[in-house]
């Protein structure tokens, strides 16, 4: 079985995010790491391949400056190889443009299964996986929280607002995986060493046959026209509990007429 996992490399979410004052785009020039949202897709792919008794897990990522530290993390977890798409014309690419690029890269691999995170931690549009399926004219199951493969059929639970739906679909299919569905493994020392030698194919737009005006800022066809500070919510009364804070809460609830 051949599985492709889409992975995004993002600025460390533990650090405060910042917009570039001239372009109003999220700054991405520092070191990038594997988006935690995607580590679930990588783990799921590794488990599905193990359950199927063998196969291959390939990664696909689009990132500025041939950045691959996040890819190396996913390779260290156990993925076999990767395609990295980098091109200066990709700056400012929106969700649809990203999907066009990733779909073109995935198309070279003819996978049985494509996995992605439901949404990235930094952009969180939650639309890219479904758009990739659209570009490739494939069926999809978004918000998948459990996945199993039975012959040429995928069975998945798709999270809904009220619970979940059971879904079945024939391969090839794309699934977006919710966070928390599996426990992403930590790369072992051996895995980290092995990852350094795993093949990463670097491609640009020309190699993918994509016109540069269909992606990037031009292809996005949208413009951030201003950024404002939101109104701050004032914090109120903060008290230390010395054993009677519950009485202050009860009083407060009384003032609010909740009790």
């Amino acid at each position: 079985m051949k599985v492709v996992v889409c992975v995004k490399q993002i600025p460390d979410p533990a650090l405060p995010g910042e917009l570039d004052p001239t372009t109003n785009l999220l700054k991405r020039d520092g070191k990038l790491i594997l988006d935690e949202s995607d580590s679930y897709g990588v783990e799921m792919a590794l488990q599905l391949v193990e359950a199927a008794g063998g196969g291959e897990v390939s990664l696909v990522s689009m990132a500025p400056n041939n950045e691959m530290s996040g890819l190396r993390t996913a390779l260290a977890m156990g993925a076999d190889d990767a395609i990295l798409v980098s091109d200066e014309n990709l700056a400012g690419t929106d969700a649809l443009g990203t999907a066009k690029v990733l779909a073109a890269a995935i198309g070279r691999l003819s996978p049985d299964l494509i996995l992605a995170g439901v949404e990235s931690s930094d952009g969180y549009t939650g639309t890219v996986p479904e758009m990739i399926a659209g570009v490739l004219d494939l069926p999809s199951v978004t918000f998948a929280k459990q996945i199993s493969i039975d012959g040429d059929t995928v069975k998945a639970q798709r999270q809904t607002e009220a619970g979940y739906d059971d879904i079945e679909c024939k391969l090839p299919v794309l699934l977006s995986v919710t966070a928390g569905v599996v426990e992403p493994r930590y790369p072992s020392f051996k895995g980290i060493m092995a990852a350094k030698k795993k093949p990463v194919e670097a491609l640009d737009l020309q190699a993918l046959g994509i016109e540069s005006n269909t992606v990037g800022v031009v292809g996005a066809r949208q413009e951030t026209i201003r950024v404002t500070e939101a109104e701050e919510r004032e914090s109120g009364e903060i008290i230390e509990d010395d054993g009677d804070a519950h009485q202050r809460i009860a009083e407060f609830l009384g003032e609010l007429k909740v009790v």
């Binding site: 929106d94 969700a95 649809l96 639309t127 479904e130 978004t142």
Partner: peptide, 20 residues
């Protein structure tokens, strides 16, 4: 979930951007 899926599929069919 269905709103996002539908907007994403429509975006590809029409080749139009989505803002989320």
């Amino acid at each position: 979930p269905d709103g996002r899926d539908t907007a994403a599929r429509l975006s590809v069919r029409l080749d139009q951007p989505v803002i989320t």
